[in-house]
Write a protein that binds this DNA or RNA. Structure first.
Lengths: 191, 191
DNA sequence: AGAGTGATGAGACTTGGTCTCATCACCGTA
DNA sequence: TACGGTGATGAGACCAAGTCTCATCACTCT
């Protein structure tokens, strides 16, 4: 028999999400989370640097976006490279198994300023990752930041729609065709 | 003689900024800040809801942006309304007196993740304020968000340049003309 | 068998943040 | 002149987040 129950980290995430839903984030203590997972406060902080981070663990987004931009065809325009990356993220991260969990997580985050703060910082990280990946392709500074900023907004909107009750089949493409306008040439796979 | 030294809030801000510069944010305690200001921890938390907020006090930005968008000519396009708001902010907030303080504040924030996190949340607030103000003008949802997102980026870049050693005279207009491109029609006063 | 490893537990400690109660100069009014 | 109200402050108890050190103990490798 194994000495410890497996998946300690996952158990902590599940316990935390449940407790945040039941009592709210600020009425939940780290000790409470650890106890529900059959662990202790010490172990919690061995798995996560702080209480917020238990909801932000799977941090592969920045890498996926950077890789997606690097993998875009050499002649792709900045926004087309961003679209390429968004497609990759859609396939890798917006999967059916994660949809219900993501929706619950989203609701919890939306209800708490401390968690929204962390999410805001993560968002800046994604934007910076895209801008840097574009600059590695030779896109000059202000253009790279504009493209990254627009990519971040598209990602945010896609995530919103995907984790809403009605929205989002496989692949993360938003059901209704998005509006054109604003003069940004529309890349083929992201609308 | 006055019973208390005046400007308690300002003294706390100054003390905090000095200590953050001397020892770093995480090596500075709230008690230390309060003592340098000739006050106590209790009083600190009466003036600021938490330790971070001592650097984010003058929170008129969101209101200025919303008012600037509301005040734009009725026939202004979304990006032109945003530009109108940015001009207003440039005149009201990017003043010569605040420049040195802003530069020091910026350096402190850049050096600490906890402070960057707070700043990221404030940035989201500004973007949301712009988007809402645009929607109050009848700009439909995704267009309003794109315009607000671009406005937020312009504001960020302007703030960066203004609080850098070389940059920014009165009014906050960036010295070199910004690049065109990306298809966004360039409004007359923001480049 | 015995030493090493690695995830865990126990608990002291600092600090951020909340809350309650006390203090005391100033102000208005009688 | 006296007196009660006001408002910013101080004192200190209290809780939870987060850090750190030391102990435990099944499993593994030699």
């Amino acid at each position: 028999m194994a000495r410890w129950q497996p998946h300690a980290s996952d158990r902590l995430v599940v316990a935390a999400l449940e407790l945040f839903e039941e009592r709210g984030y600020e009425n939940t203590t780290v000790i409470g989370i650890a106890e529900r997972a059959g662990l202790t406060k010490s172990t919690f902080f061995r798995h996560f640097p702080d209480k917020r981070e238990v909801l932000f663990g799977g941090d592969t987004m920045a890498g996926l976006l950077a890789a997606g931009i690097a993998d875009a065809p050499a002649d792709a325009a900045p926004l087309e490279a961003v679209a390429h990356a968004l497609d990759a993220v859609g396939r890798a991260a917006f999967t059916a198994e994660r949809r219900e969990f993501s929706a619950r997580r989203r609701a919890v985050i939306a209800a708490n300023p401390e968690l929204r703060e962390r999410e805001a910082l993560k968002g800046l990280g994604l934007t910076a990752a895209m801008a840097e990946a574009l600059e590695r392709r030779g896109v000059p500074d202000p253009v790279s930041r504009v493209a990254a900023q627009l990519g971040a907004l598209v990602l945010t909107i896609a995530y919103e729609r995907w984790s809403e009750p009605g929205g989002g089949g496989a692949g993360g493409r938003a059901p209704p065709a998005g509006p054109r306008g604003m003069g940004a040439g529309h890349p083929p796979t992201v609308r």
